[in-house]
Structure formats: C-alpha cells, structure tokens
Amino acid sequence: MKWEIPLVIVFVTGVILALSDFVPHQSIQDVREFFMSWLQIIGVLAVGLGLVSLTQVNLVKVRRKTPGWIYSVITLFGLVIMLVTGFVWDYREPSNPFQFLFQYALLPIYATMFSLLAFYIASAAFRAFKARNALATTILVTAVIVMLGQVPVGAKLAPLKSWIMEVPNMAGFRAILLGIGLGGVAMALKIVFGIERAYMGRD
C-alpha cells in the first residue's frame, strides 16, 4: 500500500493535467486550477520544512563545535536578522532596516558571487582550451572568433560570429533541445505510468 497510493495519485493527477491541455471546457479547467493552487500551497508549506532543516543542522554544528562551526553561527544570525527585520518593517517601503540589509548587504554579496564567473572563465579557458587535436583546435578557434565578434574591438568579425551562433551553434543546440524535449515527454509518461519510480526512493 505504501507504494500503490502515491502511484495512483501520480497517475490520476498526471492524466487530469494532461487532459486539461486538450479540453477547454470549464469543468476540467476548474480541476486544473484546483491542483495548481495546491502546488503553490505545498510549495509555501515546504519553506517551513527547509527552515527546520537549516536551523537543526546548524544548531548541531554549533553545539558540537564541528570544524567551521563559526559559519553556522553567521548563518543562523543572518536568518534571524532577516526574519525579524522582514516582519517588523514593511518590505515595500523604500528605506528601512530590512531594505538597508537587502540593498547594501545582500545585493553586493550576490553580485560578487556572480562576478566570480569572470575569474573562473579565465582560469578554465587557460586550462582547458588546448590545441590537443583537430577537434579541440576547432573549438579553440571558434571560441576566439565568437569572443572577439561579441565586443566592439572585434566588430569586423561580428558577421562571422553571427553566422557561427546562428548556424552551427544553433544546429547543435537544436539537436540537444529536441532530444531533451522528447526525453522530457518520455520521462513524464514514465512517471505517469509508474514506470519511473526512482524519485520515490525505489528502483
């Protein structure tokens, strides 16, 4: 029973939601609406689940003084301070302590993490783009043309860059995307029919 009930739920909701795409009649659209609302409700409830997990794991680390426990203290502190300021002040007001933390702590930290990409792209390019063989050399040359064509310095290469992006690159992407699209439908069917059950912790 432990396995059958979830499989039945998956089958029934899967079929109804798939049907709702082909049946415009209001009756089935209402059912779709109902499921969609539940999805949102469950998503919101799950935030609580995450909160419990986060607090528990980090509290244990602090209590046991495991290596790096000080980061757990910072995490918990951040959690509490954002929660409290978020509750006390209206997040829609342009300036208050919550907005201050958001604009002047969170935003710069996020932007910093994203900008790490520039550095990592440099080191990855340095390491990986080697003219080992004919194929690797093709990738290397193409990468250089696209990089130059993308910026004003290499404006002369822009038409060639556009061709590379819109023809060979696109052909590759389309092939991958079509495969992913069909694979996605196959996966959805496997789930609805109960063939794929690994997500329930079962082979």
């Binding site: 520039a118 792209i121 440099a122 390019a125 340095f126 390491r127 783009f129 080697k130 003219a131 080992r132 290397l140 990468a143 250089v144 990089m147 130059l148 993308q150 910026v151 004003p152 310095v153 290499g154």
Partner: peptide, 24 residues
Amino acid sequence: GMDVQSIEHLLIIAFIVVGNVGFF
C-alpha cells in the same frame, strides 16, 4: 561596460594563447 568586456575578452584570448604555448 562594453569597453570592459572588450578588454576582458582580449585578455582571455591572450590566456588561451599563452596556455597553448605552455602546452606545446
């Protein structure tokens, strides 16, 4: 920003060239 990007792209291309010299 495009000025910055231009210089960065040239720099990364230089890295690739230097990396290949070292590789060979």
